[in-house]
């Protein structure tokens, strides 16, 4: 079941903007409103837009279920590993072991009201990316599995 060419063209035009917006929300989760969950949901919405616009066969050929499953598992593993490394570093579970270290995401924050720096936040941006991958994979897998379960002629 192919939608009309108007819908397909609109989906194609909207797709990159949705992806950029979603990844922006994920990456700037510690500075601006949003976070991993919201950004992942926006990216999943972009995929769902594609699934709604194009026909069953094209989706079956282009989008791999295995890839999305692996994305979700990767996100979950990254989340738990980041939380576990805090134990090795001598902090509590989910402790912020990158905070103020000076390396990746470790620039000390200037307190008070400030425009914000992307390279702050310690472990929070990593957890954001992990949850973003997790939510993106999970939502897409749910919709894609439901779509595959529907017969094409139904």
């Amino acid at each position: 079941m192919n939608m009309s060419s108007l819908v397909r063209t609109g989906a194609g035009i909207l797709m990159p903007f949705l992806l950029v917006f979603g990844f922006y929300i994920v990456l700037h989760g510690h500075l601006t409103p949003g976070g991993g969950f919201q950004g992942g949901a926006v990216i999943a919405t972009a995929f769902v837009l594609l699934m709604v616009a194009y026909s069953y066969e094209i989706i079956w050929e282009r989008i791999s279920l295995e890839f999305l499953k692996n994305t979700e598992t990767l996100g979950l593993m990254l989340f738990i590993l980041t939380a576990l490394i805090a134990l090795v570093a001598g902090l509590a579970f989910f402790g912020n072991w990158l905070l103020g270290a000076g390396g990746l995401f470790g620039t000390p924050v200037s307190y008070g009201i400030n425009p914000g720096d992307l390279n702050t936040g310690g472990v929070i941006p990593i957890l954001n990316i992990a949850v973003g991958l997790d939510v993106l994979g999970a939502m897409s897998v749910i919709i894609l599995t439901m779509l595959f379960a529907v017969r094409r002629d139904a």
Binding site: I25, P33, G34, F37, Q38, A41, V42, A44, T45, V48, L49, M51, V52, M139, I142, I143, M146
Partner: peptide, 15 residues
Amino acid sequence: AIAEASIGAGLTTAV
């Protein structure tokens, strides 16, 4: 608002 717009208006309607 972002979560509700993407999940409620996008994904749930598709489901």
